[in-house]
Design a protein around this nucleic acid. Structure first.
Lengths: 106, 106
DNA sequence: TTGACATATAGCGTATTTGCTATTTAACTA
DNA sequence: TAGTTAAATAGCAAATACGCTATATGTCAA
C-alpha cells in the first residue's frame, strides 16, 4: 500500500469524509469538550464516535485509517487521543489528484 | 448511492485512476487503434483490458463504474465502445472535494 | 491497589469489491 | 446463414471493508 492508495481508500467512505469536514471547524460541534480546547488541541475519539452514533472501536478504526493516510494527526494526552486535521497532507493530496489526473482547473 | 459516493468509490482503485490518467493522452499508448482515432473518439475496452492485463469483463466493469461516476463517456460505435474522459465531471469532482473538505489551495 | 474511563486491539459476521470463466448480445463479414 | 469479433452480463470465489462485542492497555484518582 502506497501512501496514495491509503489516501484514496481513506476518502472512499462517507463517515471519514465527514470526520475531516467536522474537524475543519471543531467549535461548531465539539465545544462541549472540557478536557482540552477542541480547536487548539483536537477532538477526542469518543466524542467523534458519539456524533456518528458508532461504537468507540469503529471510530477508532476510522481514525487509524485517516491517520495512516496522513489526513489527521492524533496526539495522545492523558487518557485522550485528540484528533485534528493535517492541512498540509490534505492540500498535498488534492494537488496530487489534480496533477495526476491532469484536471484542468479548480 | 449519491453521485459523490459513486465518484469517491470510483477513485478508490489504482486501475481506475490509471485508466483516467491514460485517457488524458490516448495517443501515448493507444495509437495502434485502427478502428477509430483514439484522441478524437476514445479508446476501446479491449485495448484498455490488454494494457492492464486484465480480462475483458473485468475492464468492462471498471469502465461501468467510471461511467456511473460520470468520469468517462463511453460511446458505442459499430462493435466497439470507445471511452474518453469527461473533463467537466473530473473538474467538478475536484472542486467539490476541495470545497467540501475545505482544502486551502492547490 | 482498586476502580473508572478513554482508547486500542482481537475476533467475528455480513456486505462489498474485485478478479475470473462461461455465456449472451450486438455488429459485422464471408 | 454461419462464423467472428467486441462488449456486456451472470455467476462464482477470494479478498477487503466495516460494523459489532469482548477484552487488553494506558492513565488517572480515590
Amino acid at each position: 500500500m502506497t501512501i496514495r492508495e491509503d489516501q484514496v481508500k481513506a476518502l472512499a467512505n462517507e463517515t471519514r469524509i465527514e470526520v475531516l469536514r467536522l474537524l475543519d471547524d471543531p467549535s461548531a460541534h465539539f465545544s462541549m469538550q472540557e478536557s482540552a480546547d477542541p480547536v487548539a488541541v483536537g477532538v477526542c475519539v469518543l466524542l467523534l464516535a458519539e456524533h456518528f452514533s458508532v461504537s468507540q472501536p469503529t471510530m477508532s478504526r476510522h481514525i487509524e485509517l485517516l491517520k495512516r493516510a496522513g489526513f489527521i494527526i492524533a496526539k495522545r494526552q492523558q487518557k485522550w487521543t485528540y484528533c485534528s486535521r493535517n492541512e498540509a497532507a490534505l492540500t498535498d493530496y488534492a494537488a496530487w489528484l489534480k496533477s495526476s489526473l491532469n484536471i484542468k482547473s479548480i
